[in-house]
Design a protein around this nucleic acid. Structure first.
Length: 436
RNA sequence: UCCCCGAUAGCUCAAUGGUAGAGCAUGCGGCUGUUAACCGCAGGGUUGUAGGUUCGAGUCCUACUCGGGGAGCCA
């Protein structure tokens, strides 16, 4: 009877067959200890010389790391096995050999591990991390679904730049000229919002930026909710509830993986609404007050965007994710609603994760007035004719609306507590790196 | 695009300008409870590329290539 490592408990005392890969082998004279992983967990399988034929015992002692195996034996409770149950082996069959597996038990360099990413994902820490990623994605979608949001998929191939100036990957689209890989689904999701009230899109987005930092990928996944009749305040409330719910679910269901990654879960327990909020104006003041703590950076002047060192410092002054609201309109996207009493700032917010993980969510109230939106498109040097359909959304039953986008990888990096974003996606795409 | 650091065995790293080393991995041998097990033996190298300085260069100098860290931009 086949079993999985995670479900061994009910089989205690009985004989089962596990199928998986050899994580590690330790031999001690007349005993071999096989660590078998099957994706659900890792189980220590013990081969005693007296329990099996000499041929099987010899085979067990020569197994290669990561060979695939079927192992049959009796399930026994034993604290010395990682999952609390071990298998006393009676039979064993190699399914696929694994000579010279490159990733060994000692340390490796980043470049080597990324070149072997297709194998690296089998390793313990990577396995825990990617499980957390899957949980973040599932939690995000299921929370939104439960709140009445409808998933509304947006195109990846797009005819023009959604936000203008940033670098896009381009390809040729038959004889219709260039097409671009989407850097956001936001404009399209606004069309969906007017059909369904509350929608979100979820998929890969692409930025051809020459960014070489621990927070950047050229291909990353983003979940972008958009809500009709929601203003800036409502937008922030949804964001803090959403992110808190995602964190709570990871704590509930993937605590073991967080511990595998040595994540301080107490810091995650604090992630509950409301989140602290400061305006951009206040952020500038704070940065000037703490200027001496800024290494290799000056406090920004009003009108300049916040840099990575600034975001790190601001987030360190708070023990929860931090909203920075009302950035100067001039440094934000063209579609953001100006604050009525101060049109030089936008009704927007960046949500900064603690510990220097940077902006995990960016959002805003959108301009709902057709004339203002058209003016902004022109002011940003964009072609109005490219945005005909987008302007239509304001011509046919416009409403106040808001939305935001969360970068999955940044959220996962912060929640899991891993330093570099490249490990939070199975196959990272970075500047100068596209293999495997 | 800019700044800093690096490149030596399959992998991770040592080596005052003076004979190229270790751990892991691999192969062989030993050990009845190991937790990246341990112990013994063995094989494994055009020191990133091209020039230069020197009696002598892994080590110093120049250029290039590749990689790592950071910045800008952004999620």
């Amino acid at each position: 009877m086949f079993a999985t490592v995670a479900q061994l408990g009910p089989h205690a005392g009985r004989e089962v067959t596990l199928r998986g890969w050899l994580y590690n082998l330790r031999s001690k004279g007349r005993i071999h200890f096989l660590l078998l992983r099957d994706g659900t967990g890792t189980c220590q399988c013990v081969v005693f010389a007296g329990d099996v034929t000499p041929e099987v015992f010899d085979t067990a002692g020569r197994l290669d790391q990561e060979c695939s195996l079927e192992v049959t034996g009796q399930v026994r409770e034993d604290a010395r096995s990682p999952g609390g149950f071990e298998l006393q082996v009676t039979a064993l069959q190699v399914l696929g050999a694994s000579a010279d597996y490159p990733i060994t038990k000692k340390e490796h360099g980043t470049d080597f591990l990324l070149r072997n990413r297709h194998l690296w994902v089998r390793s313990r820490l990577q396995h825990a991390l990617l499980r957390i990623r899957a949980e973040v994605i599932a939690a995000s979608q299921e929370w939104l679904n439960a709140q009445g949001f409808v998933r509304f998929d947006t195109p990846i191939l797009t005819p023009c730049s959604a936000e203008g100036t940033t670098n896009l990957f381009s390809t040729s689209y038959f004889d219709l000229g260039p097409a671009y890989l989407a850097q956001t689904g936001q404009l399209y999701v606004e069309a969906g919002m007017m059909a369904f009230g509350k929608v979100y899109c979820f998929g890969p987005t692409f930025r051809a930026e020459k960014s070489k930092t621990r927070r950047h990928l050229t291909e990353f996944w983003m979940i972008e909710p958009e809500m009709a009749f929601a203003d800036h305040e409502e937008n922030l409330r949804v964001q803090e509830s959403f992110l808190s719910a995602v964190v709570a679910r990871v704590l509930d269901r993937r605590k073991e993986d967080l511990l595998t990654l040595s994540r301080d879960t107490a810091a995650l327990e604090r992630v509950t609404p409301p989140f602290p909020r400061i305006t951009y104006d206040r952020a500038i003041e704070l940065l000037n007050e703490h200027a001496t703590e800024l290494t290799d950076a000056m406090p920004p002047r009003w009108g300049e965007d916040l840099g990575a060192p600034h975001e790190v410092l601001l987030s360190r002054l708070h023990d929860k994710p931090l909203f920075v609201t009302h950035y100067p309109a001039a440094i934000k996207a063209f579609y953001m609603q100006p604050e009525p009493s101060r049109p030089e700032v936008a009704r927007c917010a960046d949500l900064l994760a603690p510990d220097g993980y940077g902006e995990v969510i960016g959002g805003s109230e959108r301009i709902h007035d057709a004339d203002l939106l058209e003016r902004r498109i022109r002011e940003h040097g964009l072609r109005v004719e490219d945005y005909g359909w987008y302007l239509d959304l304001r011509r046919y039953g416009t409403v106040i609306h808001s939305g935001f986008g969360m970068g999955i990888e940044r959220a996962v990096a912060w929640i899991a507590g891993v330093h570099h974003i490249r490990e939070t996606i199975p196959f990272p795409r970075m500047l100068d790196k596209i293999y495997p």
